[in-house]
Computed example of a mutant assay.
Amino acid sequence: MSTATHTPTQPSGRRHAGPASPSLVQSIGLVAEREVKMRLRSKTFLISTGILLLVILAGIVVGGFMAKNTASEAMKVAVVGSPGGGLTEGAAGKFDITGVPDAAAAEQLVKDGDVEAAIVPSDSNATGFELIFATEADPALVSQMSVQPQVTILDPDSDGSAGFLLYIVSLGFGLVFFVSATTFGASIAQSVVEEKQTRVVEILMSAIPVKALLAGKVLGNSILAFGQILAIAALSVIGLTVTGQSELLAGLGTPVVWFVVFFILGFILLAALFAAAGSLVSRQEDIGSTTTPITMLIMIPYFAVILFNDNPLIMTIMSYVPFSAAVGMPVRLFVGSAQWWEPILSLLILAVSAALVILVGSRIYENSLLKMGGRVKISEALKA
């Protein structure tokens, strides 16, 4: 007697398959989600964010106190032509307007100190208006213009009354950029080294592409950095409104918008550099040797904008250098010394620079991630 053995078979055309591998987009999303959750659980991140918000709030309160103490009569402004002189609708009532026949007479009144500023027509400026100040631009007047005017300072070497306000604004932009970039940049580098040191990266690379791992880290930390910037912006709007600094808030509107745009691109550039720097070493003790040069690139614009915010030449150079454009250009927009096309050109330069840095950084990251032991030379990472 024979026994027949039947082997179960799958229906024709159907085979048992394991779970499908995540797509590139899904992999990037998973890594980004992991980065966000890890940072939000970090007490260091939460404490540093809280301290930064408190510093910004303290600066707003101090600025409001100073503004109230220095409040005086309406600013005296000489205007050539129509009484509005290029001011926004309803803004003329906020200033003491003096009509003059021509630009020469308006400039003379500024020189003599009879008026604090002059609004004159300009053929050389595409917007058609020029603001003339004695020692430095007053953001309160610049912000009330219907178009972005050309700004001329007759005696830029003298000290003016708006110097403290310019210093506070410059310090604010520089501090936010410096703290956010260093906090999240260092977190990216430390995360990369930790994954190498614990060999977790080998498991991750077996499941998702290396490019997805890098893109997810950059995306996750960029989301957190952008969220931090939005929180600072919201706090600033509320603080300036409550403390009665509406004119300063109006003057900061356009510069803050450009700062956010510049910061996003600038942070992506820096994030790629920090990730590449972290992949070059295998121990947390060695991370400083590769990230210090990048940290210096962030510190330079921070100190430069504080020390040279009233130097037009240095601020112009800063507004076009990719590592400092996020600080230099908003400050120039705040004082009204930048033409309408300059932030667009600077943003294009930053975008091209970010694309090139991402290409080089991703190559270093991909070629160095599995190399353990001593520090990997950049030349070796690029050639691998």
Results as ranks from 00 to 15, higher is better:
205 M>R: 13
305 V>Q: 01
252 L>Q: 03
183 T>H: 08
47 I>S: 11
349 I>W: 00
34 R>Q: 05
172 G>E: 01
324 S>M: 03
195 E>C: 08
42 S>A: 11
134 A>L: 13
65 F>V: 15
40 L>Q: 05
213 L>S: 12
350 L>F: 01
241 T>I: 04
159 D>R: 15
245 Q>S: 15
58 A>H: 06
290 T>N: 04
169 V>I: 13
135 T>P: 08
195 E>F: 05
72 S>N: 14
195 E>A: 14
159 D>F: 07
148 Q>F: 03
318 M>Y: 00
155 D>T: 14
131 L>A: 14
105 A>V: 13
29 G>N: 06
361 G>P: 09
163 G>S: 13
67 A>G: 11
146 S>N: 14
25 V>Y: 00
328 G>W: 00
277 A>S: 12
227 G>F: 03
15 R>T: 07
319 S>H: 03
159 D>I: 13
256 V>S: 13
281 V>Y: 00
194 E>D: 08
183 T>I: 12
297 L>M: 14
137 A>N: 11
370 L>D: 07
170 S>C: 08
38 M>G: 03
252 L>A: 08
34 R>N: 04
295 T>Q: 14
11 P>D: 02
23 S>F: 00
195 E>T: 09
328 G>V: 02
81 G>D: 04
162 A>F: 02
275 A>C: 10
153 I>A: 07
108 Q>Y: 06
369 L>C: 07
170 S>L: 03
215 A>W: 02
83 P>L: 11
209 P>I: 06
301 P>S: 04
291 T>D: 03
296 M>I: 14
286 D>A: 09
61 V>L: 10
364 I>M: 05
20 A>Y: 00
8 P>I: 02
277 A>W: 01
47 I>N: 10
323 F>W: 07
313 L>F: 02
161 S>W: 00
287 I>V: 12
7 T>S: 06
347 L>F: 09
129 F>L: 13
318 M>V: 02
